[in-house]
Design a protein around this nucleic acid. Structure first.
Lengths: 201, 201
DNA sequence: GTCTATACCCTGATAGAC
DNA sequence: GTCTATCAGGGTATAGAC
């Protein structure tokens, strides 16, 4: 199960992009890490941007969200806290998945510099999650499981700490420090948040 | 009240750093925007890194937190929701302050690439805020104003949406779209959060 | 598909005239 | 304090041999 040169180039490129950003990672470094000459890269990709586009289109959706939109949300949302636990678990999973983590790092570097990355962040990541969460909270409110409020507001308030904790896990792992403390933040968030919104009649 | 060349260099450098990052902003671009030759830069700064260090040491603390630590926290924390409102207002203020916004953008670009920036983020930004907030929540709990919980957990849960909303305001403003919707997120966060933790006996 | 060789541009930085 | 001139190094990319 050997990797083709093209796959190796993509792997190395993602690795370097996630450490140094798009501009900071040169064709020279990529090819040297793969073990070929610069010019050999151009047998597999038209140019540097072509490598970038391949990575982005391959990884953007899968690295930012594990949620498939065809799941029966109506049913799973009625599980209340368990639903939130599953949602957060998928977040945590991505924070500890190698490729997803690298893509997340890369996205964060490019976010303020690159319009395309901002669009990916806003649509594939933020809006996609908010939509699912707000629908789920709406259902929970209808079922009288939680206090009534603005479902979209509740979705934002639930999601933003998850994002922050994922970022924090990533940051801590860069400096190779133990991220076990940060890994518990996800669960604590669920407990705290659910305790706040649950309807204890 | 004309700006010295040195001040102009710093202004232009911050502007370009916030748009393209440290590597992406060249001495050539900085000098051309200031209206001098590349070599003239070196009469004011030893090298490119010297410009970076000057910006960081000048702006890091003031751009990340407006809170002076010598305020009497004991008293202000007892104001409860008003305290949180003031805290969030200072956050919002920085998101709309020109230099602070640029430094924030720059910090976000470098965060995943630069150990020094991570330290600044973790210490000057994150830990500093968590310390104040956890102390404030602890006092509020003692005063029976809010439900009893882990003050540090509460601080994190309160702070992380603020960070996220500040980032979102910055992102929206880059693409010159109207950020008025995002600007209301701070107040909504306070209302939602306070409603959740307040002790209504 | 990979190599050598090469073209050409941009980078940070220095020397020395004014 | 600013200029011109210049440098070495690294950047993307192409041509052509094997």
């Amino acid at each position: 199960m050997k990797k083709t040169t093209k796959e190796q180039i993509l792997d190395v490129a993602l690795d370097l992009f996630s450490q140094k950003g798009y501009k900071g990672a040169s064709i020279r470094m990529i090819s040297s890490k793969v073990g070929i000459r610069e010019s050999a890269i151009y047998n597999h990709f038209k140019n540097k941007e072509d490598i970038l586009n391949t990575i982005v289109s391959t990884l953007s959706s899968s690295s930012l969200s594990l949620l498939s939109s065809n799941k029966p949300l109506e049913e799973s949302a009625k599980k209340g806290k368990s639903f939130l636990r599953e949602f957060a678990a998928s977040f945590k999973l991505l924070a500890y998945d190698n490729k997803s983590e690298k893509f997340f790092r890369f996205m964060m570097i490019e976010l303020m510099q690159n319009k395309k990355m901002r669009d990916i962040f806003m649509n594939d990541f933020h809006k996609a999650h908010l939509k699912i969460l707000s629908q789920a909270f709406f259902i929970m409110m209808q079922e009288d499981m939680i206090y009534s409020s603005d479902p979209m507001l509740m979705a934002r308030e639930f999601l933003s700490p998850l994002f922050f904790y994922r970022m924090q896990v990533t940051l801590v792992k860069i400096d190779k420090e133990n991220s076990s403390i940060e890994s518990t933040l996800f669960e604590k968030h669920i407990d705290f948040f659910w305790e706040m919104i649950v309807n204890n009649k």
